Simulated scan of single mutants.
Amino acid sequence: MKKIILSAIMLMGLTFAAEAQHIAKNALGLRLGDNDGFGVEISYQRGLSQKNRLELDLGWRNSNEIDAFKLAGLYQWVWNIDGGFNWYAGVGGGLGSWRDNNYDDNGTFVFAAGDIGIEYSFQDAPILLSLDYRPEFGSNGYNEDNYNGDIALGVRFKF
């Protein structure tokens, strides 16, 4: 009985290991989010292996009260769901500057960030679509409670 269970576990492990997963070596595009006002980020992803990548985002946020520029870097782990569908999670951080439109105040900040999302990589076209959530914990006037959550749609060109 132990041999059958062990064999079944090994067979399942080989099945998951043999599943084809293709992350683009490079992807460049836009990440459109709502982090306390509309924002857009120029987003670059660099595949480090078939299961890991680095994402760098340079963005601008605009709301009625505060405008901000941010540079974020995240290390991501990617898991295949089926075919071109993947889900991913990551950690990282960044820095930026902000300006308060009501009180003539400004400053710089650093932040730590997480990332979790789902993506679809088209097989017949060099397009990658993603939807993710990024919680950010910042310092020095980043937000009233030093926390912001960002839901964003990403559209990237794979090369």
Score class of each variant (00 low, 15 high):
Met1Ala: 12
Ile4Pro: 01
Ile5Asn: 05
Leu6Trp: 12
Ala8Arg: 04
Ala8Val: 05
Met10Leu: 14
Leu11Thr: 14
Met12Thr: 07
Met12Gly: 12
Met12Val: 04
Leu14Arg: 06
Thr15Val: 09
Thr15Lys: 11
Phe16Pro: 01
Phe16Asp: 04
Ala17Asp: 11
Ala17Leu: 11
Ala17Gln: 05
Ala18Trp: 07
Glu19Tyr: 10
Glu19Gly: 12
Glu19Ser: 11
Gln21Arg: 13
Gln21Thr: 08
His22Trp: 07
Ile23Asn: 07
Ile23Cys: 01
Ala27Asn: 00
Leu28Thr: 02
Gly29Tyr: 09
Leu30Arg: 03
Leu30Met: 13
Arg31Asn: 12
Arg31Phe: 06
Arg31Gly: 05
Arg31Leu: 11
Leu32Glu: 11
Gly33Thr: 05
Asp36Gly: 03
Gly37Ser: 06
Phe38Asn: 13
Gly39Asn: 08
Val40Ile: 14
Val40Cys: 06
Glu41Asn: 05
Ile42Trp: 11
Ser43Cys: 09
Lys51Tyr: 12
Asn52Gly: 09
Glu55Gln: 14
Glu55Phe: 02
Leu56Asp: 02
Gly59Pro: 02
Trp60Lys: 05
Trp60Arg: 14
Arg61Gly: 10
Ser63Ala: 04
Glu65Pro: 01
Ile66Asp: 06
Ile66Phe: 03
Ala68Lys: 00
Ala68Pro: 00
Phe69Asp: 15
Lys70Glu: 12
Ala72Ile: 03
Tyr75Val: 09
Tyr75Cys: 01
Gln76Asn: 12
Gln76His: 03
Trp79Asp: 15
Ile81Leu: 15
Asp82Lys: 11
Gly83Leu: 03
Gly83Ile: 01
Gly83Lys: 09
Gly84Asn: 10
Phe85Tyr: 15
Asn86Gly: 06
Tyr88His: 08
Ala89His: 13
Val91Lys: 02
Val91His: 01
Gly92Leu: 00
Gly92Ser: 00
Gly93Lys: 00
Leu95Asn: 04
Trp98Tyr: 07
Arg99Gln: 10
Asp100His: 03
Asn102Tyr: 15
Tyr103Gly: 11
Asp104Phe: 10
Asp105Gly: 01
Asn106Gln: 15
Asn106Ala: 08
Asn106Phe: 09
Asn106Trp: 11
Thr108His: 14
Phe109Leu: 02
Phe109Ser: 02
Phe109Cys: 00
Ala112Trp: 09
Asp115Phe: 06
Asp115Pro: 03
Asp115Met: 11
Ile116Val: 11
Ile116Trp: 07
Gly117His: 01
Gly117Ile: 02
Ile118Ala: 05
Glu119Ile: 02
Tyr120Phe: 06
Ala125Phe: 15
Pro126Lys: 07
Ile127Val: 14
Leu128Gly: 06
Ser130Glu: 04
Asp132Glu: 14
Pro135Leu: 03
Glu136Ile: 00
Phe137Thr: 04
Gly138Leu: 01
Gly138Glu: 02
Asn140Gln: 15
Tyr142Gln: 01
Asn143Glu: 15
Asn146Tyr: 15
Asn146Thr: 13
Tyr147Asn: 10
Asn148Lys: 15
Gly149Leu: 11
Asp150His: 06
Ile151Cys: 12
Ala152Ser: 07
Leu153Gly: 06
Leu153Tyr: 07
Val155Asp: 10
Val155Pro: 05
Arg156Gln: 12
Arg156Cys: 10
Phe159Asn: 10
